[in-house]
Simulated assay, not measured.
Amino acid sequence: MSITKDNNPAPGETFRLTARCKAAGCAGKLGPADLAGVLEHLELPTHPDLLVGISTGDDAGVFRFSDDLAIVNTVDFFTPVVDDPFTYGQISAANALSDVYAMGGVPRTALNIVCWPQSGLPGEMLAEILRGAAEKAREAGVVVVGGHTVGDEEVKFGMAITGVIDPRRIVRNVGAQVGDALVLSKALGTGILLTAFKRDALADEHYQAAVRSMTQLNAAAASAMLKYDVHAGTDITGFGLVGHALKMADGSDVTIVFEESDLPLLPGVIEQCRAGMMPGGGNRNREYYAPSVRISDEVSDEIATIAFDPQTSGGLLIAIPEAQALALVAELQDSGHREAAIVGRVVARREHPIELV
């Protein structure tokens, strides 16, 4: 389905999904400062079978049913990041499924979450979004069992995912150990590239590379990491590499050191960063997380910016013993995660929980 550049096309013309998003950067999560301000007023839920709740900001919740069975619950939805509705559905599904994979679980069912204008957009576009999501769910072996729709001026779509997991083999975002290597399964830069796309400044080959990354499931990465002695893991999404790594560092009482030269980058992201294509979410991430990060003087401004870039359907960040890291990277690359790389290391706690050198 072709999409025009006009947000208010004449009858019979087509529509650009991303132009329906009112605020720059609105596709991302609520800013970390705003979210922290809300959560501090809430009483944390407790239950003897609630194995993972919200206390450490893990990627999903885990509830135990028996000694060898627990369920994993997560939900994620956002405004359009691309204009093709089918692709938008695929990206949204892959992004929602990723939280279950990050915990080491296997997703089983999904519920669609739809916010859609009462008028102004053809129903065929929504059907394409749902079709794209359903195709990605089938690829993951997930059954879409239903969903819910709400009238909204802005388009939003995502999924609530339920998965299963062995409660004895949960991968948390805490537990990283001194001496661990950090492996990242996907390249960075989707937020910056998508900002350039929305401003009609992105080359098609760079757009296609971003789409390939965002529609790639983290299923193979999750399967690979479970073959090793994983100490901690998370997926890199709206709070960027720094934000999600900071949760790991604080929860593990360690410092995580990222090497500038080792960070895998999507093609074109350096150039777009220089052109000022940072999304609003990236600026909010940097403002909130900067006090926790030491950035070496030798690190380029572009890499420093990319480290805070909010990712859509990003890769898994995995802390494992250094002796196993190269084998994991090789297996990830063989399974289709060609940009997988060792991006850093875990050291004893220092003044700053995150260092970029």
Rank of each mutant, 00 (worst) to 15 (best):
Y101K: 06
V38D: 11
A319D: 08
L51K: 10
Q272H: 14
D297S: 07
A219Q: 13
P264K: 02
A340I: 01
V75T: 11
F63E: 04
L202S: 05
G336S: 05
L50C: 01
S252V: 04
D34F: 13
V164W: 10
E271R: 09
S66A: 12
I256W: 07
G243D: 02
V329S: 11
E298G: 02
F15Q: 07
P45H: 01
I295K: 02
S185W: 05
M278S: 14
D99M: 13
A209Y: 10
L202I: 02
T195S: 12
L44R: 07
L328N: 05
V269K: 13
D200F: 03
A323F: 07
A203N: 03
H244V: 00
E40W: 00
G61V: 08
Y101M: 04
H244L: 08
R349Y: 07
N73T: 14
D250C: 13
G31M: 05
Q177G: 03
E260R: 02
F78M: 14
D334Q: 13
V144N: 11
H244K: 14
R172L: 02
C115P: 02
N283S: 14
F78S: 15
P117L: 00
T234P: 12
G151N: 15
I354V: 09
P310R: 05
T162Q: 12
G179N: 08
G191A: 06
M1I: 12
L39A: 09
L97K: 03
F197G: 00
C115A: 14
L217A: 01
H337W: 01
M125G: 07
I192P: 00
P85A: 02
E139L: 11
G141N: 08
P310F: 05
R284W: 11
D68E: 15
R274L: 13
Q216T: 10
G189E: 04
S2A: 14
I113P: 04
R199C: 10
M1W: 05
L97Y: 06
L35H: 09
A10K: 13
R131H: 15
A134T: 15
L121I: 10
L265Y: 09
G105V: 10
V329P: 04
G314P: 10
R349W: 02
G37K: 12
R284Q: 12
G276A: 07
E135N: 11
A209K: 07
F15K: 12
L126W: 05
D67W: 03
S261Y: 11
R350E: 07
P107H: 08
P32S: 01
V171Q: 08
L182Y: 01
A187Y: 04
L226C: 01
V62Y: 00
P85D: 00
A140H: 01
